[in-house]
């Protein structure tokens, strides 16, 4: 983090109003002074710290930890009532409902076929998307780490889509991929037939992979670039003295030294890919058919977007997803710790 701040510019003209606002805000923020002084006289030593931590902890308790407990209760109760006391206890029914299949590779044979379409689509998506994204962000980071004229510009351009909202990302690509869009114009320009990109299952799936890589690649590139720049230059100098070919330098020096960053990027990418929802929901809505229904969309649809809101099934599915994420996070923590040691 840089040491130079973006402090308020006191001397710029026309800031009277904002300064007044600031003063009013400052006055309001001095109000806690009185009760805090009282608390300070009562609480000895560092116990005052609890007061400072309290608001944050309260929000976490209410919106992170309590929900996990409710999630478990929802998952073992049925019906479509929202209030916990109105929901009949059904035991593990929701889970067995979700997990019962005649043949696990064929979602049609499952009680909740949409869930299994989601599972298989997500699995396929995660494997392909994470592998491609890792490859492309590594390639981009390595290229940007060279002596490139205008590196800042290129880095910024690759990073820019990361900041766009998923809805905007999806609409940008929807506009390009629509029937009369520029993608089809390019196809015809090349002499090929126009394609209904988002109405063909395979194409729609491929585009969700591509668009999610397009939107998130810059973030991982940035982390890998920081990792590359942390590798001391004298190691490379030693290698160039030995006239080692670049490919071997990359494989024997760069890759092992970059491993901690690569692990972080890999697991972060995995965690995010498993939760893919927003872009895809706006781009394809899960279609055509069930070709791009992913797990989180199943949770959202089951819990909120159907006329009968099946909170129990949605909660059970999210607990299953939570289990997967927990395992991934533990792997990440392990990777980070070994990265610190290495």
């Amino acid at each position: 983090m840089s040491a130079t701040g973006i402090g308020p510019d006191r001397n710029s003209p026309g800031q009277h109003a904002s300064r007044l606002c600031g003063k009013a805000f400052g006055a309001v923020m001095n109000v806690p002074e009185v009760p805090m002084r009282w608390a300070q006289s009562r609480l000895s030593g560092g116990r005052l710290g609890w007061l400072f931590v309290a608001p944050n902890l309260a929000v976490f308790a209410l919106f992170s930890f309590l929900p996990v407990v409710i999630d478990i209760w929802f998952a073992v109760t049925g019906g479509s009532e929202l209030l916990p006391q109105d929901r009949p206890y059904v035991g593990a029914n929701n889970f067995s409902d979700l997990l019962t299949c005649g043949n696990y590779t064929d979602p049609n044979s499952c009680v909740r076929d949409l869930f299994w379409y989601g599972v298989w689509n997500t699995l396929e998506f995660v494997v392909i998307q994470v592998a491609l994204m890792l490859g492309f962000s590594l390639l981009t980071a390595v290229v940007l780490n060279r002596k490139i004229v205008g590196r800042g510009f290129f880095r910024a351009v690759f990073f820019y889509p990361v900041l766009l909202s998923p809805v905007v990302v999806a609409l940008i690509w929807k506009w390009i991929l629509q029937r009369n869009g520029v993608a089809n114009a390019a196809m015809e320009g090349l002499g090929a037939k126009p394609v209904e990109w988002l109405l063909n299952g395979t194409w729609a799936f491929s585009w969700t992979v591509f668009v999610s890589i397009w939107a998130h690649m810059g973030f991982y590139t940035l982390i890998l670039l920081a990792g590359l720049q942390a590798i001391p230059a004298d190691i490379y100098e030693a290698a160039s003295m030995d006239a080692a070919p670049p490919w071997r330098v990359f494989r024997r020096l760069t890759l092992p030294l970059l491993m901690p960053s690569l692990i972080v990027v890999f697991v972060l990418g995995l965690i995010r890919a498993v939760q893919i929802f927003d872009e895809v929901y706006v781009l394809t809505g899960g279609g055509p058919g069930t070709a791009t229904v992913y797990l989180v969309q199943y949770i959202y649809t089951t819990g909120f977007a159907q006329s009968v809101r099946q909170y129990g099934l949605a909660s059970a599915a999210s607990l299953l997803l939570a289990g997967v994420l927990l395992v991934l996070t533990l792997i990440q923590l392990r990777g980070m710790r070994s990265g610190e040691r290495g």
Binding site: F63, S64, L66, P67, V68, V69, I70, D71, F74, L82, L83, P84, Q275, F277, V296, I299, Y300, G303, F304, Y311, A314, S315, S318, L319, L321, A322, L325
Partner: peptide, 9 residues
């Protein structure tokens, strides 16, 4: 995404 339903409650 995990606590969508309970947070809504």
């Amino acid at each position: 995404t995990i606590v969508l339903v309970p947070n809504y409650l």
